[in-house]
Write a protein that binds this DNA or RNA. Sequence first.
DNA 1: ATAAGTGATTTGTAGTATAAATAGGAAAAT
DNA 2: ATTTTCCTATTTATACTACAAATCACTTAT
Lengths: 240, 240
Amino acid sequence: MVRPIVVRSLHNQVIQELGKMIVSGELEPGKSLPREELLAESMSVSRTALREAMKVLSAKGLIESRQKTGTRVRQAIHWNQLDADVLAWRCASMPTDTFIEELVEMREIIEPAAAAAAARRHTPEQLTAIKDAYDAMAAAEDLDAWAVADLAFHDRMLRATNNGLLTSLFSVIETALGTYFVMSARNSANFKLALPQHFKVYEAIRRRQPEVARQGMLKLVDDSRSNVHHQPGKANKPQR
Amino acid sequence: MVRPIVVRSLHNQVIQELGKMIVSGELEPGKSLPREELLAESMSVSRTALREAMKVLSAKGLIESRQKTGTRVRQAIHWNQLDADVLAWRCASMPTDTFIEELVEMREIIEPAAAAAAARRHTPEQLTAIKDAYDAMAAAEDLDAWAVADLAFHDRMLRATNNGLLTSLFSVIETALGTYFVMSARNSANFKLALPQHFKVYEAIRRRQPEVARQGMLKLVDDSRSNVHHQPGKANKPQR
DNA sequence: ATAAGTGATTTGTAGTATAAATAGGAAAAT
DNA sequence: ATTTTCCTATTTATACTACAAATCACTTAT
């Protein structure tokens, strides 16, 4: 499950490289980048490829280019924080405790509400999809399989809300949650500890009991939060 | 308040033009675009500018390019729905009833929770900022001034959560909410109808009463929802 | 019938040239 | 001395050309 992220094109490599440097703070906000010609040379790409990458980073709010002035790194306020790449870069380079806190709070807000909505509006097919993910969790024999199934469970629950915006929100924070789930489960001697609680949520959705689903999901999120916090020091070490 | 959106650069124009065409459905998912040389010519720009635009659209998940095969429009599932541009394009071209429903549901989930968080964690400066926005709402003499102050109120409340992800989420849906607020307020004979409820929320935040703030904000969102629904037919007509 | 190979087509990358914007200084006016 | 206007150098923006890389569709050999 070591997502290869085989960057096919050159400009994608440049996007990743510059993006990571900016988000990690290696390139400080307000600071000017070398002018295109020099930067392209130093990265061993053509100015064409560099510029295509810069347009994308600009669209993500990371940089700002103006004629004569040059290109400078923008303040973090302007970053498109909900962009999948930006989140992934934050995750890859030092997921600080405050970042994890923000993520957990987001989950506490979104997921219980989504569970309630799913209980109200799910279709039979969507329910089956959730059940399948649950079964995969139950059948998981190692941490990786568990994490994949766990993500699928939450993903399919979000889809069952039939709200495209909610679904997108999850798919965006999915990357971050991936590393988070592993962190959370790793601390448990038995990584299947959360299985019964998942079943309760599934049952509440199946029986169309929104409030039960909401409470069940809230407990689920809170449990994994406390698991992460039992091991505070290890939080800022990315593996990959 | 007729946001000009003066698109300075050429490739930004191309981004906007193609983006709107895709999101509006004028260019159907799965369909191939003309090859770069032809498309560039038909849009009267160089292939360079066109490609810079395509890289951005590609990053937003709207299109996908492969050598020899060409470039095709991706399914809506893959679109970066929480991208500010994508949301704006959806808004500009036919905000369907289901889209508005999704937006309202999002608000119902996010904003009460955010009000509660703001009540817990706001700083004095942030409280003052909220109060300023409230005062501006109270002093508003026309719908435009009201809408601006209303947006500012919600924006500053979100900021007072001190959660960057929540703040980003709001700034993303802000554009959509802008048109939504106007729609909501236009139906009220007196657009200041919601002012007292805003004050209640502000007071709850000031007194650090999370649950009161949550309930107050929930009522606020629900009220504006019912206002929008009183005039269902007019919902799908963009102005600009 | 199957496999290997070949060519044509489209995007990807590089390089060069010129246009447009503007920061910063020089010159002129007050 | 201060302000205004103008100029110029520098950097990004756009255009154009050429070639590389990938791969679909077809051909050929076995």
